[in-house]
Simulated assay, not measured.
Amino acid sequence: MPDDLGRYLTAGPRVGLRPFSPDDAEEFTARARESGELHRPWLFPPSTPEAYAAYAGALIEDPARAGFLVCEHAEGVAGGRIAGFVNINNIVRGAFRSGALGYGAFAHAAGRGLFTEALGLLLAYAFGPLELHRLEANIQPGNTASRALVQRAGFRLEGFSPAMLFIDGAWRDHERWAVTGPS
């Protein structure tokens, strides 16, 4: 990664991953509000400054979570538009070394291949510096875009869990996808 990419922890040709910051509240919440139709009923990212502060604060402070903004960049310059986010939740260390993946693209970035690149960067970071061995993604069966994304990243379908998570007022079925890092 070129040194001039600022706050990015890792970067590819079109996107970089960087930590959440309190300074990102205005842009993040505006993008979340613009993307409501894209996200429903799968996802509900924070859309107010107060909700963002709580969300980002938990990602920053909780050692069982790691959150990253996906930002577009051009010509090796950091600081591009926030395209979405990728988070690793429920991180367990020790012999398990696992985490649960969560992510969301904002409407202006959807369908452009940015998240295929971002997820590849995240996997390299998770299996490298974070020293994880396994990532899981729980996806509602009707979310074809999300299923296609994890398939492109090498995740395998491991099972089905009926009524797994309470989302948007109902218990939702989920497919369980996983990928493991190099042994």
Score class of each variant (00 low, 15 high):
D4L: 07
D4R: 12
L5W: 08
A11G: 14
P13S: 14
R14K: 11
V15E: 13
V15F: 11
G16I: 04
R18E: 15
P19S: 14
S21C: 11
P22G: 12
A25D: 06
E26G: 13
E26H: 07
T29E: 11
A30W: 01
A30K: 01
S35N: 03
S35L: 03
E37K: 04
L38H: 11
W42F: 15
L43M: 12
P45I: 05
S47L: 00
T48S: 15
P49S: 11
P49K: 04
E50G: 09
A51P: 03
Y52F: 15
A53C: 02
Y55E: 05
Y55I: 01
G57S: 06
L59V: 04
L59N: 08
L59G: 06
E61F: 02
D62A: 09
A64M: 02
A64W: 00
R65V: 02
G67P: 09
G67M: 07
L69W: 06
V70G: 12
C71P: 05
A74W: 00
E75I: 00
E75H: 11
E75K: 03
E75A: 14
V77T: 14
A78G: 10
A78N: 02
G79K: 04
G79M: 07
G80T: 06
G80K: 02
R81S: 14
I82G: 07
A83P: 07
G84F: 03
V86S: 02
V86D: 06
V86E: 15
N87L: 13
N87H: 14
N87E: 15
I88P: 04
V92M: 13
R93C: 06
A95W: 05
F96P: 01
F96R: 11
R97P: 01
R97M: 13
S98L: 01
S98N: 15
G99N: 10
G99E: 12
L101K: 10
L101E: 13
G102Y: 09
G104D: 09
A105V: 03
A105F: 05
A105N: 09
A105R: 01
F106C: 01
F106I: 00
A107Y: 00
H108F: 13
A110M: 04
A110Y: 08
G111M: 07
R112C: 07
L114H: 12
F115A: 06
T116W: 01
T116Y: 00
G120Q: 10
G120D: 12
L121G: 11
L121Y: 07
L122T: 14
L122P: 10
L123Y: 02
L123Q: 15
L123E: 12
Y125Q: 14
Y125L: 15
A126H: 11
E131H: 12
H133K: 02
R134Q: 09
L135H: 09
L135I: 08
A137T: 09
N138S: 14
N138F: 13
N138V: 03
I139F: 07
Q140L: 05
Q140F: 09
T144G: 13
T144S: 14
T144H: 13
S146P: 08
A148M: 06
A148N: 07
E158T: 03
E158C: 09
G159F: 06
F160S: 02
P162Q: 04
A163V: 00
F166E: 00
G169I: 03
G169Y: 00
A170T: 05
W171Q: 00
H174N: 11
H174K: 10
R176H: 15
A178C: 04
A178W: 10
V179W: 10
P182C: 00
S183W: 03
S183G: 13
